[in-house]
Design a protein around this nucleic acid. Structure first.
Lengths: 258, 258
DNA sequence: GGTAGTATTACGTATTTATGTATTACGTAT
DNA sequence: ATACGTAATACATAAATACGTAATACTACC
């Protein structure tokens, strides 16, 4: 009789999947990391990660610095830019952003969503002496910002609630709303109104006035927002809100949403 | 006696490599394509490409439209933005670009190099009524533009010559220089001078005044340039050149090149 | 100076997978 | 109606590779 071989189905994971896990860990970290750290974070076999990191590095998908830390490589910038160039929403949004920044002389941001994070995708600085903390590429939990809430406002009640349940994070700032149910209700209300305003949450005395940019299917594919000192915003709120909303509508028109 | 089996060493290519080939074809095309077309272009087994395209699509590295054409997916934007966010040259360059655009009220571009192409990496439109043809992400052969030539100007004579030999393309515009030797000499001269000017090549009556941004190792890692109507440029050339060069120097200072 | 954790590399192998081959379907030119 | 190139999918298999294991070296803590 044959001795039954250990029937633990060794679960191999494809190189492509492992590669993406590595890229994801680095994007999450937002800084270079060692192959060892990456492997530990993923919970993947160390030897596997070492060899795939080596492979990706030789293909310029990753770079290695003098301390043997790896970071995303130039090839990813190439693909990212190619993607952007084709995406006409961003093209139109960027044009309108530049226009609005010059007109209002305030900082304008275009934000998109990536899973549970709001991503600053483009920015125009209208006011030289005013610097915001969030730069291009920065990622913020959806429950922290006006734009974040707008970006899930089109989802049906349950889906929206699940998003906040899954991805809400508590912020250093005590004002942040954290109750998922309340968040999803606010989110839907703001999306329907086509406007979300947030004061002084992500930063000291900074206001953000955001409007949704809707795609052809009615979903929120991006937001456009003014970021400016609280005092300025509150003294002239109607003016800024109407300008931002006008810009959002122009973009929607340009991409054929209406 | 055993019949010798056909000893053709079947040369398998890894899934990661095939994935990158697919992404490269799509970036080159600059538009969506079918799996069949991609396979033909690469010269890869059709079944392989179909299955890998399927795999990448399910992982959001690619998207598929209603005609079954595939295009780069949102995940690539994520990685591209993360890469950019970490790259302090671009951060500084972008800041200075915004500043200069507001000051000169002209269009400013930040360009980088990807192999034999010059890539428009960031842009600020200072003048609303003037629209350039080259948008963010657009790729132009290095021999067509002032910025392109600057971006290889730091290479040693032979390397520089090889770049032009390998990557020069003839343009629809008859003015384009195509002799590699002449190009490499011009390139080195311009890089040393810290200035390259090109009139009316890539577009009708449009001038480009570009300055190199040098990294800590002295190589040209990016360029900053003003793009404006020929008439404006020639009537005030000294002013524009000195402003662009000042900006380039400021960026180099900010990233610690000098 | 021994034990434990971190960091990296090397190697054999079970297991996945990239490929070749075949099949179906569609348009269109012969 | 037949032949041909394009387009897409299915399946078996030879061959690459993701994984387990082990070896080496370096810190740090007792």
């Amino acid at each position: 009789m044959m001795i039954e071989k250990n029937i633990k189905t060794r679960n191999r994971i494809s190189g492509i999947e492992r590669s993406l896990q590595i890229l994801d860990v680095l994007t999450d970290f937002g800084r270079p990391a060692s192959a060892y750290d990456i492997a530990k974070t993923i919970g993947a076999p160390i030897s596997t990660i070492y060899s795939i990191v080596e492979d990706l590095t030789s293909r310029e998908m990753l770079t290695r610095d003098s301390n043997n830390l790896v970071w995303l490589g130039p090839r990813l910038l190439r693909y990212g830019l190619a993607y952007e160039a084709q995406m006409d929403v961003l093209l139109e949004a960027r044009k309108e952003m530049d226009h609005l920044a010059a007109y209002l002389k305030e900082t304008i941001q275009i934000c998109t969503r990536d899973e549970g994070k709001m991503v600053v995708t483009a920015m125009a600085t209208g006011n030289e002496h005013f610097h915001v903390a969030s730069h291009i590429g920065s990622r913020t939990p959806i429950n922290w910002t006006a734009s974040g809430r707008l970006l899930v406002g089109h989802m049906d009640d349950n889906e929206c609630l699940e998003m906040f349940k899954k991805y809400s994070e508590t912020s250093p700032n005590t004002d942040t709303i954290i109750d998922p149910l309340q968040l999803s209700k606010t989110s839907k209300k703001e999306f329907t109104a086509g406007l979300a305003i947030q004061v002084s949450l992500s930063e000291f005395s900074v206001s953000c006035i955001a409007a949704p940019i809707r795609g052809r299917d009615g979903s929120c594919i991006a937001t456009i927002s003014v970021v400016l000192p609280e005092l300025k915003a509150s003294s002239n709120l109607d003016y800024f809100t109407s300008e931002v909303q006008k810009s959002a509508n122009k973009i929607e028109l340009a991409i054929g949403s209406y």
